[in-house]
Amino acid sequence: MAGLPRRIIKETQRLMQEPVPGIQALPDEKNARYFHVNVSGPADSPYEGGVFKLELFLPEEYPMSAPRVRFMTKIYHPNIDKLGRICLDILKDKWSPALQIRTVLLSVQALLSAPNPDDPLANDVAEHWKENEVSAIEQAKEWTLMYAPVNNLK
């Protein structure tokens, strides 16, 4: 952790000592600005029972610019595209240096509980969600079982 800004060190220590329920974030052994993240699908969501792998990277400008976060696990969600990019306001224009890594992770977890097809990144998924929500939710559940099974963690 040598050479890292004090803020990143403190945030990392807090994540390790006080983990966010349903979220595991571990800094990479070779690059402490890069985190391996596992997010459990929230209860009562189409993603319940799944564990999703994400990567989180803190750019040099952090905390003046937002972390870069993306899903590594395939997911059927209107606000997450095929490449795993996430449409979330705090990762874009609503970022504030007052926010922290844990705030970002909690927001990503909340997005799984409340997909927003009116602000999509995956237009095809959003259209499906709007036209037939029940069918879209079934598809999300199927993808969760297929791509994010709990026993898939390594």
Rank of each mutant, 00 (worst) to 15 (best):
D44V: 02
Q13C: 11
Q24T: 07
S45V: 03
P5V: 02
P115D: 07
E60I: 08
E133C: 08
E61K: 10
L88T: 05
E61Y: 02
L106F: 03
K82I: 06
N31K: 06
R68T: 15
M16H: 09
N79K: 03
V104N: 09
H36S: 10
M146Y: 06
Q24K: 05
P117L: 07
K141W: 00
S40C: 11
V69S: 13
L105I: 12
L145D: 01
P21A: 00
P63G: 12
A126G: 09
Q100L: 11
L99C: 11
L15D: 07
Q100E: 12
F71T: 07
Y62C: 15
Q139H: 09
V108G: 12
V51L: 14
K53H: 12
A2M: 03
V37M: 10
I9P: 13
P21W: 00
E18S: 13
D118W: 01
K130N: 10
S135P: 06
W95E: 06
R6C: 05
L4N: 12
L58Q: 12
S113W: 04
K53Y: 06
S113C: 13
P117T: 12
E18D: 10
I75R: 05
I9T: 14
T144E: 04
F71P: 15
Q100W: 02
D89V: 01
H128F: 13
R6M: 07
P42Q: 00
G84M: 10
N123H: 09
L91T: 05
Q139W: 03
R70M: 14
Y147A: 14
I23N: 09
